[in-house]
Design a protein around this nucleic acid. Structure first.
Lengths: 223, 223
DNA sequence: GGAGAACCGTAACGTACGGTACGGTGTTTT
DNA sequence: AAAACACCGTACCGTACGTTACGGTTCTCC
């Protein structure tokens, strides 16, 4: 009630960003520990400063999640030309990017944290999960929506509900990757593997929702 | 080193099962708290007994996970007749069952727990995730594998690798349900909704991997 | 150059919790 | 009946950790 800590504004000092990066690094390299003392030591700052800047432990965690989310916002997946090839490329590019994000150690650690304290029926910060969801899954959906709808208006793909189609796409791309990684399964997706999975998922999606005009896998000349 | 606690045998007293059920109930109804004292109070037993039976906290958790897993093993998805309709029914029945399992509060709480301590780089019990994975995701895969291969041998579906096909099926069925629930998203799948999703996913899977002989929705003359 | 703020490092406090010990009670065994 | 056992309830111990407090150092501003 004294002062509002981190009042939704992105007013983060260089130093503060460095501290949050230290939190991220700590989360990644040694799982769930993450004590305030460890953070202070790692970031070479005093605990007093930590509490002054972020209020309490939950404030620090929330700020960290937001900070990471603000770093991930990436490319826009243009929808200028509207032929099948361009749509397919956009989808593949998106899928590959998303796969590499969700399989990155940072994302795994962050999701693990949000899930861990997601069920704390108690008072304060049960919203980490909501923040991750809003900045991860839902932001992604909002970003891809125009691509889907442009594809539909161009008659390349057909579906009644954009959200439903999008969720099918998500399922084909991600499959059980995220839950397995969260549960500690090895299963490191290398670069080419990601690329291959992205292409497979996209082609499957187009096979399901494509209108058949210039359907992929029915090559004119190329492959 | 004194005595082996719960040595892989299912030698669980009625009373012990009741204790583990109390743990499950506690996990479900109040998220991640789960202190030994709370368990003892809830189960009306002494902490001493808890430690005598399960060794330590990790032992109790592990036993709980195993206990829940042993309760879930369900139907066998017969593969007697081998026409498309029977295959489709088996798949839908499986998908609906799996959806209802992963969206159940117990499963969510259990996965949350396993994920939460899954990254504990430390010494003891980093294997909860592995246990959940082995008894959940992988057991499911092993159980459905014969169905897939029977379908392939009957010429109803075609794929190079069973695992790959299975993972596509999993993706189409589960989509982002599990991760969203774990992150605290509301999204209660009612019975009819589950049934509908199961059918949709199965039909999509058959559209992708079906050979076209009597393909569903493309009757008799096929395409 | 001096006052004050910002911050680091560390010590101190309070609490929560895993784990243990102990007395009391009911049940089984001899 | 007495001893042995299994168990409940509770008190107790040690530690880890969130949070606060404080002395010392650097930087800024006048």
């Amino acid at each position: 009630m004294t002062t509002q800590h981190d009042p939704q504004g992105e007013a983060l000092t260089e130093r503060q960003q460095a501290v949050l990066d230290a939190v991220l690094a700590l989360m990644v390299e040694q799982g769930g520990e993450l004590t305030m003392t460890a953070v202070a030591r790692r970031a070479s700052c005093s605990k007093e400063t930590l509490y002054k800047w972020f209020g309490d432990r939950d404030g620090l965690l929330t700020a960290t999640v937001r900070w990471q989310a603000s770093k991930v916002r990436a490319g826009n997946y243009d929808r200028q030309r509207l032929d099948v090839s361009a749509l397919r490329d956009s989808l593949i590019r998106f899928a590959a990017n998303w796969l590499s994000v969700i399989s990155s150690p940072t994302s795994i650690a962050l999701n693990r944290l949000a899930i861990a304290q997601g069920g704390k029926g108690g008072k304060g910060a049960g919203n980490l999960g909501a923040i991750v969801l809003a900045n991860g899954r839902f932001a992604i959906g909002e970003r891809l929506r125009p691509v889907f709808e442009a594809g539909r208006e161009a008659g390349l793909i057909a579906f009644a509900d954009t959200e439903t189609a999008f969720r099918s796409f998500i399922g084909l791309v991600g499959r059980d990757v995220q839950i397995r990684l969260l549960l500690g399964d090895r299963l490191d997706l290398a670069g080419p593997e990601i690329e291959r999975d992205a292409a497979r998922a996209t082609d499957q999606f187009l096979a399901l929702y494509g209108t058949g005009n210039h359907a992929p896998g029915r090559p004119t000349i190329n492959a």
